[in-house]
Design a protein around this nucleic acid. Structure first.
Lengths: 356, 356
DNA sequence: TTTTAGCACTCTCGGATTTAAAGTGCTAAA
DNA sequence: TTTAGCACTTTAAATCCGAGAGTGCTAAAA
């Protein structure tokens, strides 16, 4: 009865919420007696026991063994998080804290993300991360060069998403400022807006004949491939790794090893975040997704938008019994601040029809 | 008697060596009986017991408790490593492996270091790291700019040690290619070879009046400070973090947390490596140095030289009972390869008296 | 004088046993 | 429908015990 939302009576919800929160705080299974004593529950322990038995049979709770208290199941956490998503809020103090931390003005996404992972970690006390997701079909829109000395110059690549990458190129042969100007001119003519696999031998031959130095073209092409790879390869910054250790869940087990490995390989986490749609905060609890790595962990993240497109994400990773309320609120605000920072009207679009 | 070297008789050295190696392999205390059975020791267990008792009173061995075997003390490891340093060698197979892994041609120190830490980790099976040490008194020798669009350009800084850094600068006001040329010209005239604290208000005022855009100068100066900070701030790349977990020494304890923290803070490890002199492989065992972080760990690294100057280091970190022979040999070779790579004659010096 | 064999002693580790605590499910009463 | 009470289960901690390993010491052998 009274099951208009999620199939649970109000009292069941209340009990589930109380159990999740108690377990988040203490890390131990929580029993009926504890709930009657310390909480806003007005019924007796026996009643709660009955309700808990039902919640368990519905899959929201688990019992490590007979006569331990109950622990939320992954489904239980999920329900809690979903319910929470509608109502979380931050204290004014915490918002002020975020604002202050973000005052460190940052101008480039790469460095924003780096700081953001640190901030996320320090605010939530979990391991923080920031990500620039893979995105196929990014190409180079424009090439620039800058002469450095007789044997080296800088190649600047402006990508279709606005990011700018540079490469330091060193060559055997003597070069002149004229040489590098030629390089950028030729590149701008031949290699614009091509995918990595569209750059074929004829194009390279043409480049060589026009620049007149095969080794140089070689070095340049290698850099271009590298940059193209980086552009859609995604980046992952992690900070506060040591915070994982404060939770007994990770004290010993191999889960910690899996997480560390995942942070180094990056692919799993990049995939997970890249495949996600939507603006709000996402929570991946246990192995909900196909990524087995985060088996007994929770990954919470919020996408970051710039000009309507997802350009990154920030999040935290921690044990199943994560302080969801706090994390959700923090990420929501932090993500909002970063999005705002990115969209400040200092950097106008290049003007597609306004410039020609 | 017969204590010409290190104050130990030859037999004591042999026993110490056998104990260290047995303990490295097995991870357990080693007793006198084990040594007589499996090793090249020709005397009886009783004799070994006597020698071990002496080695212990001299500080080279420790006993976890009465009637466990002996474990090398930090001093014991140190002696072993010092003795080893004179004679280690690699198998041809391992050298071939290094050479192949380094075939991935790399052109810049930053990226060399990144790969190097991975290679070091995968060859030794310990956590690898690569470092670019702090070095005071690096200044910017030359500025270049490249126009990107009406609101952004690239600032290129060529440092006195030859490294090149770039910064993407975004400004509110409209700019032209002429503007950015002015910027580099003025910078090249006023801000060359200055330390961060030598850039004072008069210079900035002069810049503003010449460039004519205070906000732009502001952004530029901020980037310059950042780059100067990075140049002498050092960098630390770590890879194979998860390998730490395979050693029971780090399975549970807080040592792991300290290490993870140290890798994130970077300062401790940077200081440690930056303060070291000499070409060869260095081993820091336990808390030999003032860095308390690596209390129950060993850090082994080899400096990397370019044109006679130390420009970085590669190393590994692991438990006290590290396979020193293997690690020392690997790092020696790997470091040598990188040094060679850096000094390949493709990149000649800018020619101090040869060019003018 | 140095090495070895033998033996008593100490200590830890693993397993088995016990005890205390916690929590449940169920029944019967309110 | 809720509550009180109670018997039952199960775990975690404490205790005990014996086996095993290794030592130090003493006395004999080289």
């Amino acid at each position: 009865m009274a099951t208009h939302n999620g199939g649970l009576s109000d009292r069941k919800k209340l009990i589930l919420k109380a159990i999740v929160e108690a377990h988040i705080q203490g890390g131990e299974p929580v029993g009926s007696k504890y709930l009657t004593e310390s909480q806003q529950l007005t019924c007796s322990s026996a009643t709660i026991r009955n309700e808990m038995a039902e919640l368990e049979s519905m899959g929201f709770l688990e019992q490590p063994h007979t006569s331990a208290g109950r622990v939320p199941s992954k489904q239980g956490y999920r329900f809690y998080v979903d319910a929470l998503l509608e109502e979380y809020a931050m204290t004014a103090k915490e918002i002020a804290q975020i604002n202050q931390l973000m005052k460190v003005k940052m101008s480039e996404l790469d460095r924003i993300l780096d700081s953001a992972s640190k901030v996320a970690s320090s605010l939530t006390n979990y391991t923080g991360f920031a990500i620039k997701p893979r995105s196929r079909s990014i190409t180079v829109n424009r090439f620039e060069t800058a002469f450095i000395d007789n044997h080296s110059f800088i190649l600047i690549l402006v990508a279709s998403d606005g990011t700018v990458k540079t490469r330091n190129i060193i060559v055997d042969a003597e070069i002149t400022p004229r040489t590098v100007t030629t390089v950028s001119d030729v590149l701008n003519e031949l290699v614009i807006e091509l995918d990595a696999d569209e750059i074929n031998l004829p194009i390279i031959m043409e480049l060589e004949s026009r620049v007149g130095d095969a080794a140089l073209v070689n070095a340049v092409m290698k850099s271009i491939y590298e940059v193209l790879g980086e552009l859609d390869g995604g980046e992952l910054k992690v900070s506060g790794l040591d915070r994982l250790l404060q939770y007994p869940e990770f004290a010993d087990s191999e889960d910690l090893g899996q997480l560390l490995g995942a942070f180094e390989r990056k692919e799993d986490i990049l995939d997970l975040v890249s495949d996600t749609e939507g603006d709000g905060v996402h929570a991946v609890i246990g192995s909900e997704s196909s990524v087995k790595v985060i088996n007994n962990s929770t990954l919470v993240f919020k996408p970051i938008k710039s000009k309507g497109k997802t350009v990154g994400a920030i999040g935290v990773i921690g044990p199943l019994r994560m302080d969801y309320a706090r994390v959700l609120a923090t990420l929501e605000n932090l993500g909002g601040n970063i999005t705002q920072l990115l969209n400040e009207p200092k950097h106008k679009e290049k003007g597609d029809s306004h410039d020609g």
